[in-house]
Design a protein around this nucleic acid. Structure first.
Lengths: 221, 221, 221, 221
DNA sequence: AATGAATGAGGCTTCATTCAT
DNA sequence: GATGAATGAAGCCTCATTCAT
C-alpha cells in the first residue's frame, strides 16, 4: 500500500505480512510460550529460516503483532468515535466498539488476553496496550468533566476501572464453557459504567444503539 | 497421626511448606512457564530431587499453590466481612480487604495476575480463582437487592465488572514504574463501584475508612 | 515355619528372604532396568532404606536372586536325575524337568530370559547360569559316550546346542500371544535332541513319560 | 526428487544413515537402556539435537535399526540360498550364512542378542526378528518333508529348536573370554541339526564347506 | 530470499544411593 | 534394624537460533 513498485520491495512486504498472519493464528491458540517458531512457520507456510530473515527474534514477532493489531483496533475505535460530539457518548461508543470487535473475533481477543500473560517483558507490551485504551477513555472523560457533563473525578483511576471492567467481562466470556453472546452484557456494563461516573439516570435510560458492528476479518488476511 | 511429637512429624510438613513457599517466590516473578524447577529448588533451598519427593509435578505445585493462596485470601475476606451486617458494606469491605492484602504484598498479587500463563488448564486455574471472588461479591450484591438497598441489576455481570475493576487497578499498580500507594486509589474506586450499582450519594459520602490492613507476610515464612 | 526362636537372628534371615521374594516378583515383570528399588520395596513391604541395610546394591540383589533361583532349579534337576541310571535318560530327564518347572512358572522363566538381558555385567550372570546347565548336560553326554551309548561327538558344542534349543522353545512360549501348553512341545523337542546325538530310533520311540511335574510355588513364599 | 545433484540431497540421507550407524555402534555395546542418546550422538559425531531432527524418539531409532539390520541379513541369506535346489541344503546354507555373518561381525550379533533389553515392546522387536529366521528355516524344512527328503515332523518346533541352537552357540561365543573361531563349531552344529531331523548319515558325512563368508563391514561406514 | 539441517542450552523427571533419626 | 526424606547425576526431549547452501 505504501510501495507500489519494485518487485523485491513488495516481496518483503508480502512475507512479513504472511508471517505476521501466521503468527497471529499460532499465538492465538497456545499463548506465547506454548507457540513454537515451527508453529508459526507452519501457519505461514514458510520455512523456519525464512522467518528469521524477516524477524530477529520470536519476541520481536510477538511485539510487532501486538502493536499492529492494537493499531487496527484503535483505528477502528477512533473512526467510530469521530462522529460523536458528546464526550460521554464518545467514551460509550469506544467501549461498545471494543466489545463488538472482540465479540466478533474471539481469536483476536485471545491474543490480547491470553498471550499477554507470557511472563517477563511481555507484561510490558500488554501494559502499553492497556495503557493506550485507558488513555483514550481518560481523554473522553476529561473532556466530559471540563464540559461539566459529569462531576469531577479522578479520571486516571476511572479510566483504569472502566477498562478493567471491560477486560474482565471479555475474559470471562472467552473462558466460558458455552459462551453466550458477548453483546448481551453490554447494556448492563454500559449502565454500570455510566452510573459510576455520575451520568444522570435519564441519560442512561435513553440507551443508544451500540455502534455499528466492527468488521475485522475473523481470519486476518 | 502416628507421631505426635515435633521433629520428624513436622519435618514432612515443614518441607512441603518450604517448597510451597519457594514456589510462591519463584512463580511470583516469572510466571509458570518461565519458572524452572531449579528456581523453586533454589528458593526453597532444597535439591531438585527433593521437590519430587513431595510433589509429582511442577504443575501440581502450581495448582496447590493457587488453591492454598486463594484459600488464605478468601478466609481473610470472610473474616473481615463477618462483622458487617449491611450487604453493601460487606461488598465494600471485601473489596477493601483484597486491595489491602495486595497492597501489602505485591508478590501475592503477581501470582494471581501474572502466573496465569502457560497455556491451557492454567487459565482454568486462574479463572476458577477469579470466579470465587466474583461469586463472593455477587452474593453480597444479591443480598443488597433483596433488601432493596440497591435497585435490581444483573449481579452476575456486575460482580464481574467489580472484580475486573479491582483487578486492573492492582495490575496497573503492579506494573507502574514507580508505584504510588495502592490505598490511594481506594476512595475513587469505592465511589465508582458503589455509584455503579446505584448506592445513594449520601451513603457514599459517609465513606468509612477501609478495614484494618491485612497482615499477610510479604515473604511467607 | 522354619524358625521358632530368637528374634534378632532370624529377623535378618526373614528380611533378606522377604526382600528377595519381593525382588523376584518385581524383576519378573519389567526386567532389571525397568524395575526400581521402590518397586522391590513395595513388593517386599519394606522401606527403601531397609533394603539397603541388607543389600549394598540393586545389582547385588539381582545377582543373588539369580544364584538362589538357579540353585533351586539345579537342585530340582539333580533330584529328578538321581534315580536314573542311564546317562541318556539323565539328560532327557534334566531337560524335561527344566521344561516342566518353567511350564508351571512363567514368572520364573521370565526372570531367566528377560531380566538377563539387562546389559553390562548381567550377561555374565546369565551366562554363568546357562553354563551351569550346559555343563550338567555335558556331563551326562560324556558319560553316555564313555559307555558307548551314543557315538563320540563334541559334547561341549552339543550341550550348548541342547540348552539353546530348550531356551528358545521356552522363550518363544513366553512371548506367544496366547501360549499353548509348553509341555506339548516336549515330545518333538525330545525326539530332535536325542536324534541329534545319534540315539537309536527304537529307543526314542519308546518315549518315556516326562518326569513328575515340578512343584515350585508360583509365588515364591 | 527436487534435487538430483550430490551434496545437499545426500546430506539428509547421509545424516540419517550416519546416525543409524552411530546408533548401531552404540546399541551394540550396552543394549538399549544403557545406551544414552548422547552416546549415539557421540558415535555419529552429531549433536544431540541433530538426532531429533531425523528421529522422533530413541525408541524409533532402535526399531528402525533392528528392521534395517534384519533386512540386510535376510537379504544375505536369501541370496546365498537362491542357488541351492535341495531344501535341506537350503536350510543348511541359511544356517551357515547366519553363522558366518555373525562370526565376522560380533557387533551385529550383539545387537541381535543383547539389545533385547529395555522392557516391553522391545522383546517384541527382538522376537519378530527371531520369528523371521525361524520361519525361513521352517519353510525349507516343510519343503524337505513334502519331498520326502526327511520324515514328517513338527517343523514349527523344529525351526525354533534350530534357531535356538544357533543362537546359543553364537551367544556363547560372544561371551567367551578368549573366543575360538566360531566356524569351528559349524561341523558339529550342522551334524547335530541335520541328524535331528533324520537326514541320512551318509548325506551328513558328505558335508559341504559352508558358503563363502559374508562381507558385512565390521564397523559400518 | 529462502531452506532446512544442525546446534546446544536448558527443562522436566527418574532413580540408585545416602543419611539423620 | 528400619524409616523415609533428601541428594544429585543422568536421561530424554524441546526449541530458539544459526548457518551453509
Amino acid at each position: 500500500m505504501r510501495r507500489q513498485r519494485s518487485q523485491p520491495a513488495d516481496h518483503g512486504r508480502a512475507s512479513r505480512e504472511t508471517i505476521l498472519d501466521g503468527a497471529f493464528q499460532a499465538f492465538t491458540k497456545g499463548g506465547y510460550r506454548d507457540t513454537a517458531i515451527d508453529d508459526i512457520a507452519a501457519a505461514a507456510e514458510i520455512s523456519k529460516g525464512g522467518i528469521y530473515f524477516h524477524f530477529p527474534t520470536k519476541e520481536a514477532i510477538f511485539r510487532e503483532l501486538m502493536r499492529t493489531t492494537a493499531d487496527k483496533l484503535v483505528g477502528k475505535v477512533e473512526a467510530a468515535v469521530a462522529s460523536e460530539p458528546d464526550p460521554i457518548r464518545k467514551a460509550e461508543v469506544a467501549l461498545a466498539t471494543v466489545l463488538e470487535v472482540f465479540a466478533g473475533h474471539r481469536t483476536m481477543a485471545r491474543l490480547f488476553f491470553e498471550a499477554g500473560s507470557g511472563g517477563r517483558g511481555f507484561q510490558a507490551e500488554t501494559n502499553a496496550l492497556h495503557e493506550r485504551f485507558a488513555c483514550l477513555i481518560q481523554s473522553y472523560l476529561d473532556e466530559a468533566i471540563s464540559q461539566s457533563t459529569i462531576p469531577p473525578i479522578d479520571t486516571r483511576v476511572t479510566s483504569v476501572v472502566w477498562f478493567g471492567a471491560l477486560d474482565e467481562v471479555v475474559a470471562r466470556w472467552l473462558q466460558a464453557e458455552r459462551p453466550g453472546r458477548l453483546e448481551d452484557a453490554y447494556p448492563t456494563l454500559r449502565a454500570l459504567l455510566l452510573r459510576s461516573v455520575g451520568v444522570a439516570a435519564e441519560t442512561i435510560a435513553a440507551g443508544p444503539a451500540p455502534a455499528s458492528l466492527a468488521t475485522f476479518p475473523e481470519q486476518p488476511k
